[in-house]
Design a protein around this nucleic acid. Structure first.
Lengths: 342, 342
DNA sequence: TGGTCTCATTGGATCGATCAAGGCCGTCGA
DNA sequence: TCGACGGCCTTGATCGATCCAATGAGACCA
């Protein structure tokens, strides 16, 4: 049990274990990587030596020889203050957990804010990471195009919206299904005039989410005209947009493209002395911590981020296999977290 | 310029660059690591070759030889759903940014939930990381003790509460100063009966934050008896505690040990048709996204996480220097983000 | 011219693992 | 009895960088 190690001494190497177990280096290596090749008594002896010495293969040496780092790179973007965006936190955690089971670690890096490519190149050329996970595909993801052209292994969280010809692996969540779910839920609760507050028209994700609302409304023969607003993703924008919509279109419920916008609606309701979930129903998107703790609780579309991480790691394993296997894109379906606001 | 690379070909090595520049391998290595040693024209020639080939030193080889990975390990804990805890997100980002400038990357890992030590050992023995940053020191940080005894390089975000003899580097934020700031702010606004909702007594951090409230109250000759409550860090607990306090002690303001608890207070106020910031003032702790977007805005103590990251990286550089330099602990002061709730 | 000193540059060894061959031993069929 | 074969293990080469000691060129002085 006492797996002590000499303090400040260099850690034991393969050769140390080999000597102790009375076998060659290669045999120790096999004991670690291909146990089937050893006779069971030899294996036991080697494993005992490994345990006694507290041996763990030197990563650098292994990486050098096998030309792999077992590291997955992920660029993180500056946390946006003043919004309710909480996707990253949960996703990063799921990814770390899932990759661990697959024998990978996650390496975080940052890049210049204005250059979506920066950072990737160095990590690739120095063979620091085996592959990337890219997440911010909302910008017409230039990284995906660049990485693909560079033939770098990667998986995208987000489909290749603007590039039907894209051949890379991706995993995404069906946003339209989420807003459809949200809208249908409100309709079942008896709402007919349901407004939409989403992002500007140049956001493909925003338009996708909007289509779920339209689809659900039209499926029940409900009108959508005059009930939609497209703004920036800020609380202030959501507040203004909801105020205007309330005055001009008299909706009884709001479906929003984000929790941030939904919080804007709550602000407006508060301004007017109205109560969310009583007079007016509100549904957000992302199931952020904000949605979870704000009174009276914000109903919100929840992305299955744990599942996304699992699918992404699965795809990564395929890509890094010999020969590489690039499966088709994976589309997951969100759920609706019901709370007091509806 | 066209820094192309053969597709799928092995990246260029030091030897390739050397051949192209007509010098030896060592000279190229020096051009990268000790440019001063080269004559300026040789340096220019080598750098040109490096640029033309798109050379970047192989990390594994370098790590193997120098016995360093330039990776900083950080264990992340499961994101707590249903709370407003947002410290990690902001901190991780700051840490990634800051370490990049120091030539380090951040490697995330997870461990078994019940074993605070798991995960560290493997990374150390395999020399995957050079050092750790540990963050969850609230539990009487067994990791710190373990790492210290193991003589592993690390810096703690959080002081060594329970171990005055601890010799390791740490950076922390003065929580008591934060709650003092919050309480004083409320007193200046004319409040006299200011209640405290904090964590259970076994939380040293909670007791520290509480002491800031007591200190500020007593400094103005205000009583604190019957105005304090210590509960779990959940919205529900904050809600109940504030309801009881309102009934029994009639405070006009609340200072809370977390934004999560503060949100509980907002729930209670809503239950009773009261308005935060009007009848009753509320101040939270952490300046989470929740505090930023909830109507009418939650005043909250904000930790200078960017600064914390800078100090941590500074300390890490000292520890990893030859010989190691372990400076004294660094204590930073939080600020107060003023919003509608006060 | 020869000797010494400085400084850029060189070639070989090395870090610790895995890959690719090759050796030893016993079994089996002819 | 011999060779082929397969299971198990060993040996030497290799990945791509850096460390180390040594070499070569040039400057300066006697």
């Amino acid at each position: 049990m006492g797996r002590r190690i000499g303090r400040l001494a260099t850690p034991p190497t393969l050769a140390d274990v080999a000597e102790r177990a009375g076998v060659s280096r290669q045999t120790v290596s096999n004991a670690v990587n291909n146990p089937d090749l050893l006779r069971s008594d030899t294996l036991a002896r080697v494993l005992a030596a490994i345990d006694e010495l507290g041996y763990s293969p030197n990563r650098a040496a292994r990486n050098l020889r096998t030309r792999a780092s077992h590291l997955i790179g992920m660029r993180i973007n500056p946390a946006q203050e003043g919004t309710a965006n909480a996707t990253m936190d949960r996703f990063v955690h799921s990814l770390v957990e899932t990759s661990r089971e697959a024998g990978y670690h996650v390496l975080l890096f940052a890049g210049d804010h204005d250059d979506p490519i920066s950072g990737y190149d160095d990590l690739l050329r120095s063979t620091t990471v085996d592959a990337f996970v890219i997440t911010d595909t909302y910008l017409g993801n230039p990284q995906a195009a660049w990485l693909e052209q560079r033939r770098a292994p990667f998986v995208a969280f987000g489909r290749p919206w603007d590039n039907q010809a894209a051949e890379h692996a991706w995993v995404d969540v069906d946003g339209a299904a989420g807003t459809d779910l949200a809208t249908s839920h409100l309709i079942e609760r008896g709402h007919h005039r349901i407004a939409w507050i989403g992002w500007r028209k140049d956001s493909v994700i925003g338009e996708d989410r909007r289509s779920g609302w339209t689809r659900a409304m039209h499926a029940r023969g409900l009108a959508t005209t005059g009930l939609a607003s497209r703004v920036e993703d800020t609380v202030a924008s959501g507040r203004e947009a909801s105020a205007v919509l309330l005055d001009e279109a008299h909706p009884t419920a709001f479906v929003c493209a984000s929790d941030t916008l939904a919080m804007g609606v709550l602000h407006t309701l508060r301004d007017r002395g109205m109560e969310a979930g009583r007079e007016i129903a509100v549904v957000g998107f992302d199931d952020s911590q904000v949605a979870q703790v704000v009174p009276p609780g914000l109903t919100s579309v929840r992305q299955p981020l744990e599942q996304v991480a699992i699918e992404i790691v699965k795809a990564l394993e395929g890509i890094l296999a010999h020969p590489p296997v690039i499966g088709p894109g994976v589309m997951l379906t969100p759920t609706l977290a019901l709370r007091g606001s509806s």
